[in-house]
Amino acid sequence: MALPKPLTNLSALADAFGSNSIRVGAIALDREHAIAMAGELLVASGRATPEYTESMLEAVAANGPYIVIAPGIALAHGRPSEAVLEIGLSLVTLAQPVVFGNQANDPVRLVLGLCALDHDSHIEVMAGLAALLADQDAVNSLLNSVTIDEIRSLLENAG
């Protein structure tokens, strides 16, 4: 996708979250349920097909709970494939923390879904995400948000 001028990291981050990509205070029964919700939001926001959600679940089954990248935060994703329509992120905050099986970082309260077309075109988005997640205050605000609008404004303004 050609853009007229380079976007900053943070607007690239906010743009990666399409409409209907965020859900607040969801109730997940287990790890698979939580990951499936993040996948469904990528589908709902037009960034991936339902097959991509399947690949997210297969990835965690095959490779383990390493996707819990920081205390309380999971980054669920599959691999680039035809099931990916456009780079996208989704976000689910969980009403009740869910155990993913990651000793260091369980339980999970925030699940991010990610789909990418290839291995490097989403680097700018990831840089924005890294900056956001490294900011503990911003993460706490995300976790404590009760509306989608609050989360949107954090995604647009954090950093």
């Binding site: 095959a62 490779n63 390493y66 980054l75 680039p80 995400l129 890294a130």
Partner: peptide, 16 residues
């Protein structure tokens, strides 16, 4: 390195 090479490993690369 991560399972897929698009998510976790990219964050790890940036922080490294």
């Amino acid at each position: 390195v991560c399972g897929m090479g698009i998510g976790t490993s990219v964050l790890l690369k940036m922080n490294a």
